[in-house]
């Protein structure tokens, strides 16, 4: 079943065309990665899927219904972790539930049950300022996952981390996904991250962004080895797609960070 279908979506801000005729669909239980140059409109795409913004043209369907903030089908983890300094870690992770009107006590019990799995046990009563970067991201992810919504949108969740922590977090997320088989759309700059985690990698062109290539990562999730030749071959294909898109772009010089 199709969890997310983006049909010919365009988005402009005034005279700035950010997305043009973008097509993308994600099956239920699929891990999709969206990779594209900086400023190409990846976050904009997520704003459309979460219903925060409306597309200028085309349709965004989540489980067959038009996207909207009140439909409760999408959980969005924004690029900034946006943990609130005045809330304890536990109360930060209940924010989404409380925003939906769940009683605080129930929300706490629900979130608390996930702490061990997210490697945050013992930090329930700490404040975000006392957490490491990796823990902050896990807390933000917990806040997103605990909502139990059918589609997860993760906007560069590890973009701000140092490379060691990032590698660690990628492996952790891979393990979590294998266990839960969430429907995930992950935005990233990092080719390795995409190949390590995703079933499908959608490559975006520079602005105005459209999908220029769709690469199926046909490697078993259990044994993805970044040093294996099959792995690097997929990386190579994505890099070529990105380079091609950047070279073709009328906008000219656009930086591509291939992590």
């Amino acid at each position: 079943m199709t969890a997310l279908r983006i049909e010919g979506v365009s988005k402009s801000y005034g005279s700035l065309d950010v997305l043009r005729d973008l097509e993308l669909s994600v099956r239920e239980g699929e891990f999709a990665a969206v990779i594209g140059p900086s400023g190409s409109g990846k976050s904009t795409l997520f704003n459309l899927v979460s219903g925060l913004d409306r597309p200028t043209g085309g349709r965004v369907l989540v489980e067959g219904e038009p996207a909207g903030v009140t439909s409760g089908k999408v959980a969005y983890m924004p690029q900034k972790d946006l943990l609130f300094p005045w809330r304890t870690v536990l109360d930060n992770t209940t924010l989404g539930l409380e925003a939906q009107g769940v009683r605080r006590k129930r929300a706490r019990a629900q979130a608390d049950a996930l702490f061990a799995e997210f490697g945050l046990d013992g930090f329930q009563r700490a404040y975000p300022a006392q957490l490491s970067g990796g823990m902050r991201q896990r807390a933000a992810l917990l806040r997103t996952v605990v909502l139990g919504r059918p589609v997860l949108l993760l906007d560069e969740p590890f973009g701000a981390l140092d490379s060691l922590t990032r590698a660690e977090m990628q492996l952790w997320l891979a393990g979590m996904w294998r266990r839960h088989r969430w429907t995930v759309v992950l935005v990233t700059h990092d080719i390795r991250e995409a190949v390590l985690l995703a079933d499908t990698v959608h490559v975006l062109s520079p602005r105005p962004a459209t999908v220029v290539d769709r690469i199926d990562v046909r490697l078993p999730h259990e044994e993805r080895d970044v040093a294996a030749p099959e792995f690097t071959a997929v990386e190579r294909r994505i890099l070529d797609a990105l380079r091609g898109a950047t070279a073709d772009a009328t906008t000219g010089r656009t930086e591509v960070t291939a992590g």
């Binding site: 979460s50 219903g51 925060l52 903030v69 009140t70 409760g72 999408v74 969005y76 924004p78 900034k80 946006l82 609130f84 005045w86 809330r87 924010l95 989404g96 409380e98 925003a99 939906q100 009107g101 909502l147």
Partner: peptide
């Protein structure tokens, strides 16, 4: 109040009053 924080609350389905109580009041303290 951080605009992005308000957007996060909106994406979570919070109405105006609830977003006010959960974000604007504490961040104004």
């Amino acid at each position: 109040t951080d605009r992005e924080a308000m957007r996060l609350l909106r994406s979570l389905g919070a109405g105006r009053w609830r977003a006010f109580r959960l974000v604007r009041v504490p961040s104004a303290m």
